[in-house]
Design a protein around this nucleic acid. Sequence first.
DNA 1: CGTTAACCTGTCACTACCGACAGTTTTGCG
DNA 2: CGCAAAACTGTCGGTAGTGACAGGTTAACG
Lengths: 245, 245
Amino acid sequence: MADQQAFFDLLDIMESEEAVEQKRFFALMRSAFRIANLLYVDVELLSRGFRVHRIHHTFDTSLVDAYLDKDAGCIDAVLRMASSDVRPIDLADARRRYPDSEALFQAALHFGLPPEGIILPLSAPTRRCARLVIQTDIGAGEWTAYRRCHLRDFQLLANLFHASLLESDERFTDRVQPGAALTNRETEVLGWAAAGKSYWEIATILGISERTVRFFMTNARRKLNVVSNTQAVAQAVRHALIPIS
Amino acid sequence: MADQQAFFDLLDIMESEEAVEQKRFFALMRSAFRIANLLYVDVELLSRGFRVHRIHHTFDTSLVDAYLDKDAGCIDAVLRMASSDVRPIDLADARRRYPDSEALFQAALHFGLPPEGIILPLSAPTRRCARLVIQTDIGAGEWTAYRRCHLRDFQLLANLFHASLLESDERFTDRVQPGAALTNRETEVLGWAAAGKSYWEIATILGISERTVRFFMTNARRKLNVVSNTQAVAQAVRHALIPIS
DNA sequence: CGTTAACCTGTCACTACCGACAGTTTTGCG
DNA sequence: CGCAAAACTGTCGGTAGTGACAGGTTAACG
């Protein structure tokens, strides 16, 4: 419990300052706790592959870059593993539960990085997935006690850091939709089109004429500023105008 | 710091047990901390409105239900406000920053519920948004100190509870895609269709014949088990086969 | 060297979509 | 009641998407 004060100092910094720089946060964390390395990732996970929005870490740059190029498949598996769980996961547990990640841990060991540490879940905006990985040099025996004592500290500080990054991100403010809002009928018709129904089918379902369905769809296309039903539906799904259902 | 032991006891429970029941967690939290009420929500936020996946709370049922029916617009605004921030937000701050929520706080006050407490962000799967709201009877002056001391406890325990709920949820395991995976070209063509391009345009862009574009699209439709390009693109966006871009 | 999968192409007939023409009716609000 | 916005309808002509016909080429793998 020696670093209680260090935590509270760090908490005050994270809560009081507008934006905490990534390097500063990593440095503060490393001085406040017995942390060897930190890795922060914010990605958009796709069915195949992923798009990195942000990645920051304190590992050797050449090591990480080399690995990213060499074995993207393994990185992909590790990301998918980490994102499928919203619980803090111990690195040792991750290694045990997901054999695909073994290559990564082997490479880390080769560089003198023992597999002790934890992956913390972070609340990301729609379709994104962010995690903070903390790696330590503490032995497995001692780590259990240290983790129990400081997990809450790690999780909260990680959340605050992550929030700080998101807030400083312009892209996070693109919530506002351009153009006018769709009417109920327009949304409804879009939803059925997304379900693969033709104009005739939608007309039958809604009990209106086929011409009217086209009327709504045309209005929706105009409002969304798109050229085809297909693009309109893509937009609607992306902007959550229609539910997953 | 009197309830330090209570926190660690609770942490051990949350970490050791497979699934912690919602009522039990709420009871444990209320006995371990000076918490008056808890509210957990997990929703899918749409451009207009929302779909509730889960909602649990310790407030008076009639109060919440009545409010949900009466003023969905306000609830909507509050949800949107809470989800736009991934930082823990004090209820008092939320009230100050978002005038739309005033009606809700007024109603709460009317039922003897003071606006002290916090909204905790939770990491949810794609397109979902989950939050745990903690409300206390502690006075505003004392709350600041109590909050500083226990925010980390609240955040970590909330995360673990949330993870426990998600894990027990069948729907969370629907990650597996039915049918075969799309090839690179099929995905590529779908992406352009989602961008509103016609077959002819896609053919020109990719430098192949229009017929070939149709070939890929037909294969994609067959693999996704859909009947139109529109439905195929809707599926592709929903299942993150193609990026937001 | 055979097999498989991905990638690529042409044509025909049909149906669905889409823009532009020109309206009516209903609903909600000040 | 007047007005605006939403909901609703008909028809025409052109373009785009769709299924089914029947192929060829290239790269990877055992």
